[in-house]
Design a binder for these strands. Structure first.
Length: 213
DNA sequence: TCGACTATTTGTT
DNA sequence: AACAAATAGTCGA
């Protein structure tokens, strides 16, 4: 009964080493959502489905077209290479229909945080001209349907604690380490990796709003 | 310096 | 009305 029309889609699953990744791909070959690498296939599937912001009528795997299957495979392979430390560009066609305007602004900023850098929730709030909305930013980032592709693991707390992560703090630490961001034993990132709001704003004006505003 | 705690704050369900 | 991956402040050890 939602305002949003449902789309037809499929869950593609694949292995990354011992782990599983699930990707929801719609009929137009756009990525609706993906899971983080999980220990079981079911866990990954459940997470990917729960992160989808668009209502999806899921079809059987046997009904997947080769094109849809290819998108799923490319996402899994891309994330797999990423976790191996390769500097791959994770650029995919995304279904952004379910994003609220606030999430669009927040994720647009998160999208431009470069590899090897972090920014805090408050800085993002500042950049979207809503300086006191840091907590709401956390709320929005927590529902990011495309973890790793939209690098929400690069968002940390203003006191340099790394903050929370849907995929677990170990995963967040691992991702940051892969990108060359040092995390101390106490779970702090070094200030040298920290992007100030002014620099973040410059990056946004250069790269544009990936998800609109 | 560090934790524990408080008031304040905003978008979403 | 309640929640969340927050923040800035205080206080005591």
């Amino acid at each position: 009964m939602g305002v949003l029309a449902a789309v037809n889609g499929f869950v593609y699953t694949g292995r990354i080493g011992e782990l599983w990744l699930a990707v929801v791909v719609d009929e137009k070959e756009r990525v609706v959502s993906l899971s983080l690498p999980r220990r079981s296939e079911k866990e990954a599937v459940d997470e990917a489905k729960s992160l989808a912001l668009v209502p999806v009528n899921y079809g059987f795997r046997s009904e997947m077209t080769p094109f849809i299957r290819r998108v799923g495979r490319e996402v899994v392979e891309g994330v797999g290479l990423y976790l191996k430390g390769e500097d791959v560009k994770l650029e995919f066609d995304l279904n952004t229909d379910g994003l609220t305007s606030f999430m669009r602004r927040v994720l647009s900023v998160v999208y431009v945080i470069p590899r090897g850098f972090v920014a805090c929730y408050g800085s993002i709030a500042e950049v979207i001209n809503n300086p006191r909305a840091s907590r709401a930013v956390g709320n929005a980032v927590a529902r990011n349907p495309w973890p790793i592709i939209v690098p929400c693991h690069r968002v940390v707390r203003s006191d340099f604690n790394i903050g929370g992560y849907r995929g677990g703090l170990d995963m967040k630490r691992k991702l940051l380490k892969i990108e060359g961001v040092a995390v101390t034993a106490r779970g702090r990132v070094l200030a040298s990796h920290y992007l100030r709001a002014s620099r973040l704003r410059e990056l946004v004006s250069k790269r544009g709003l990936r998800f609109g505003g």
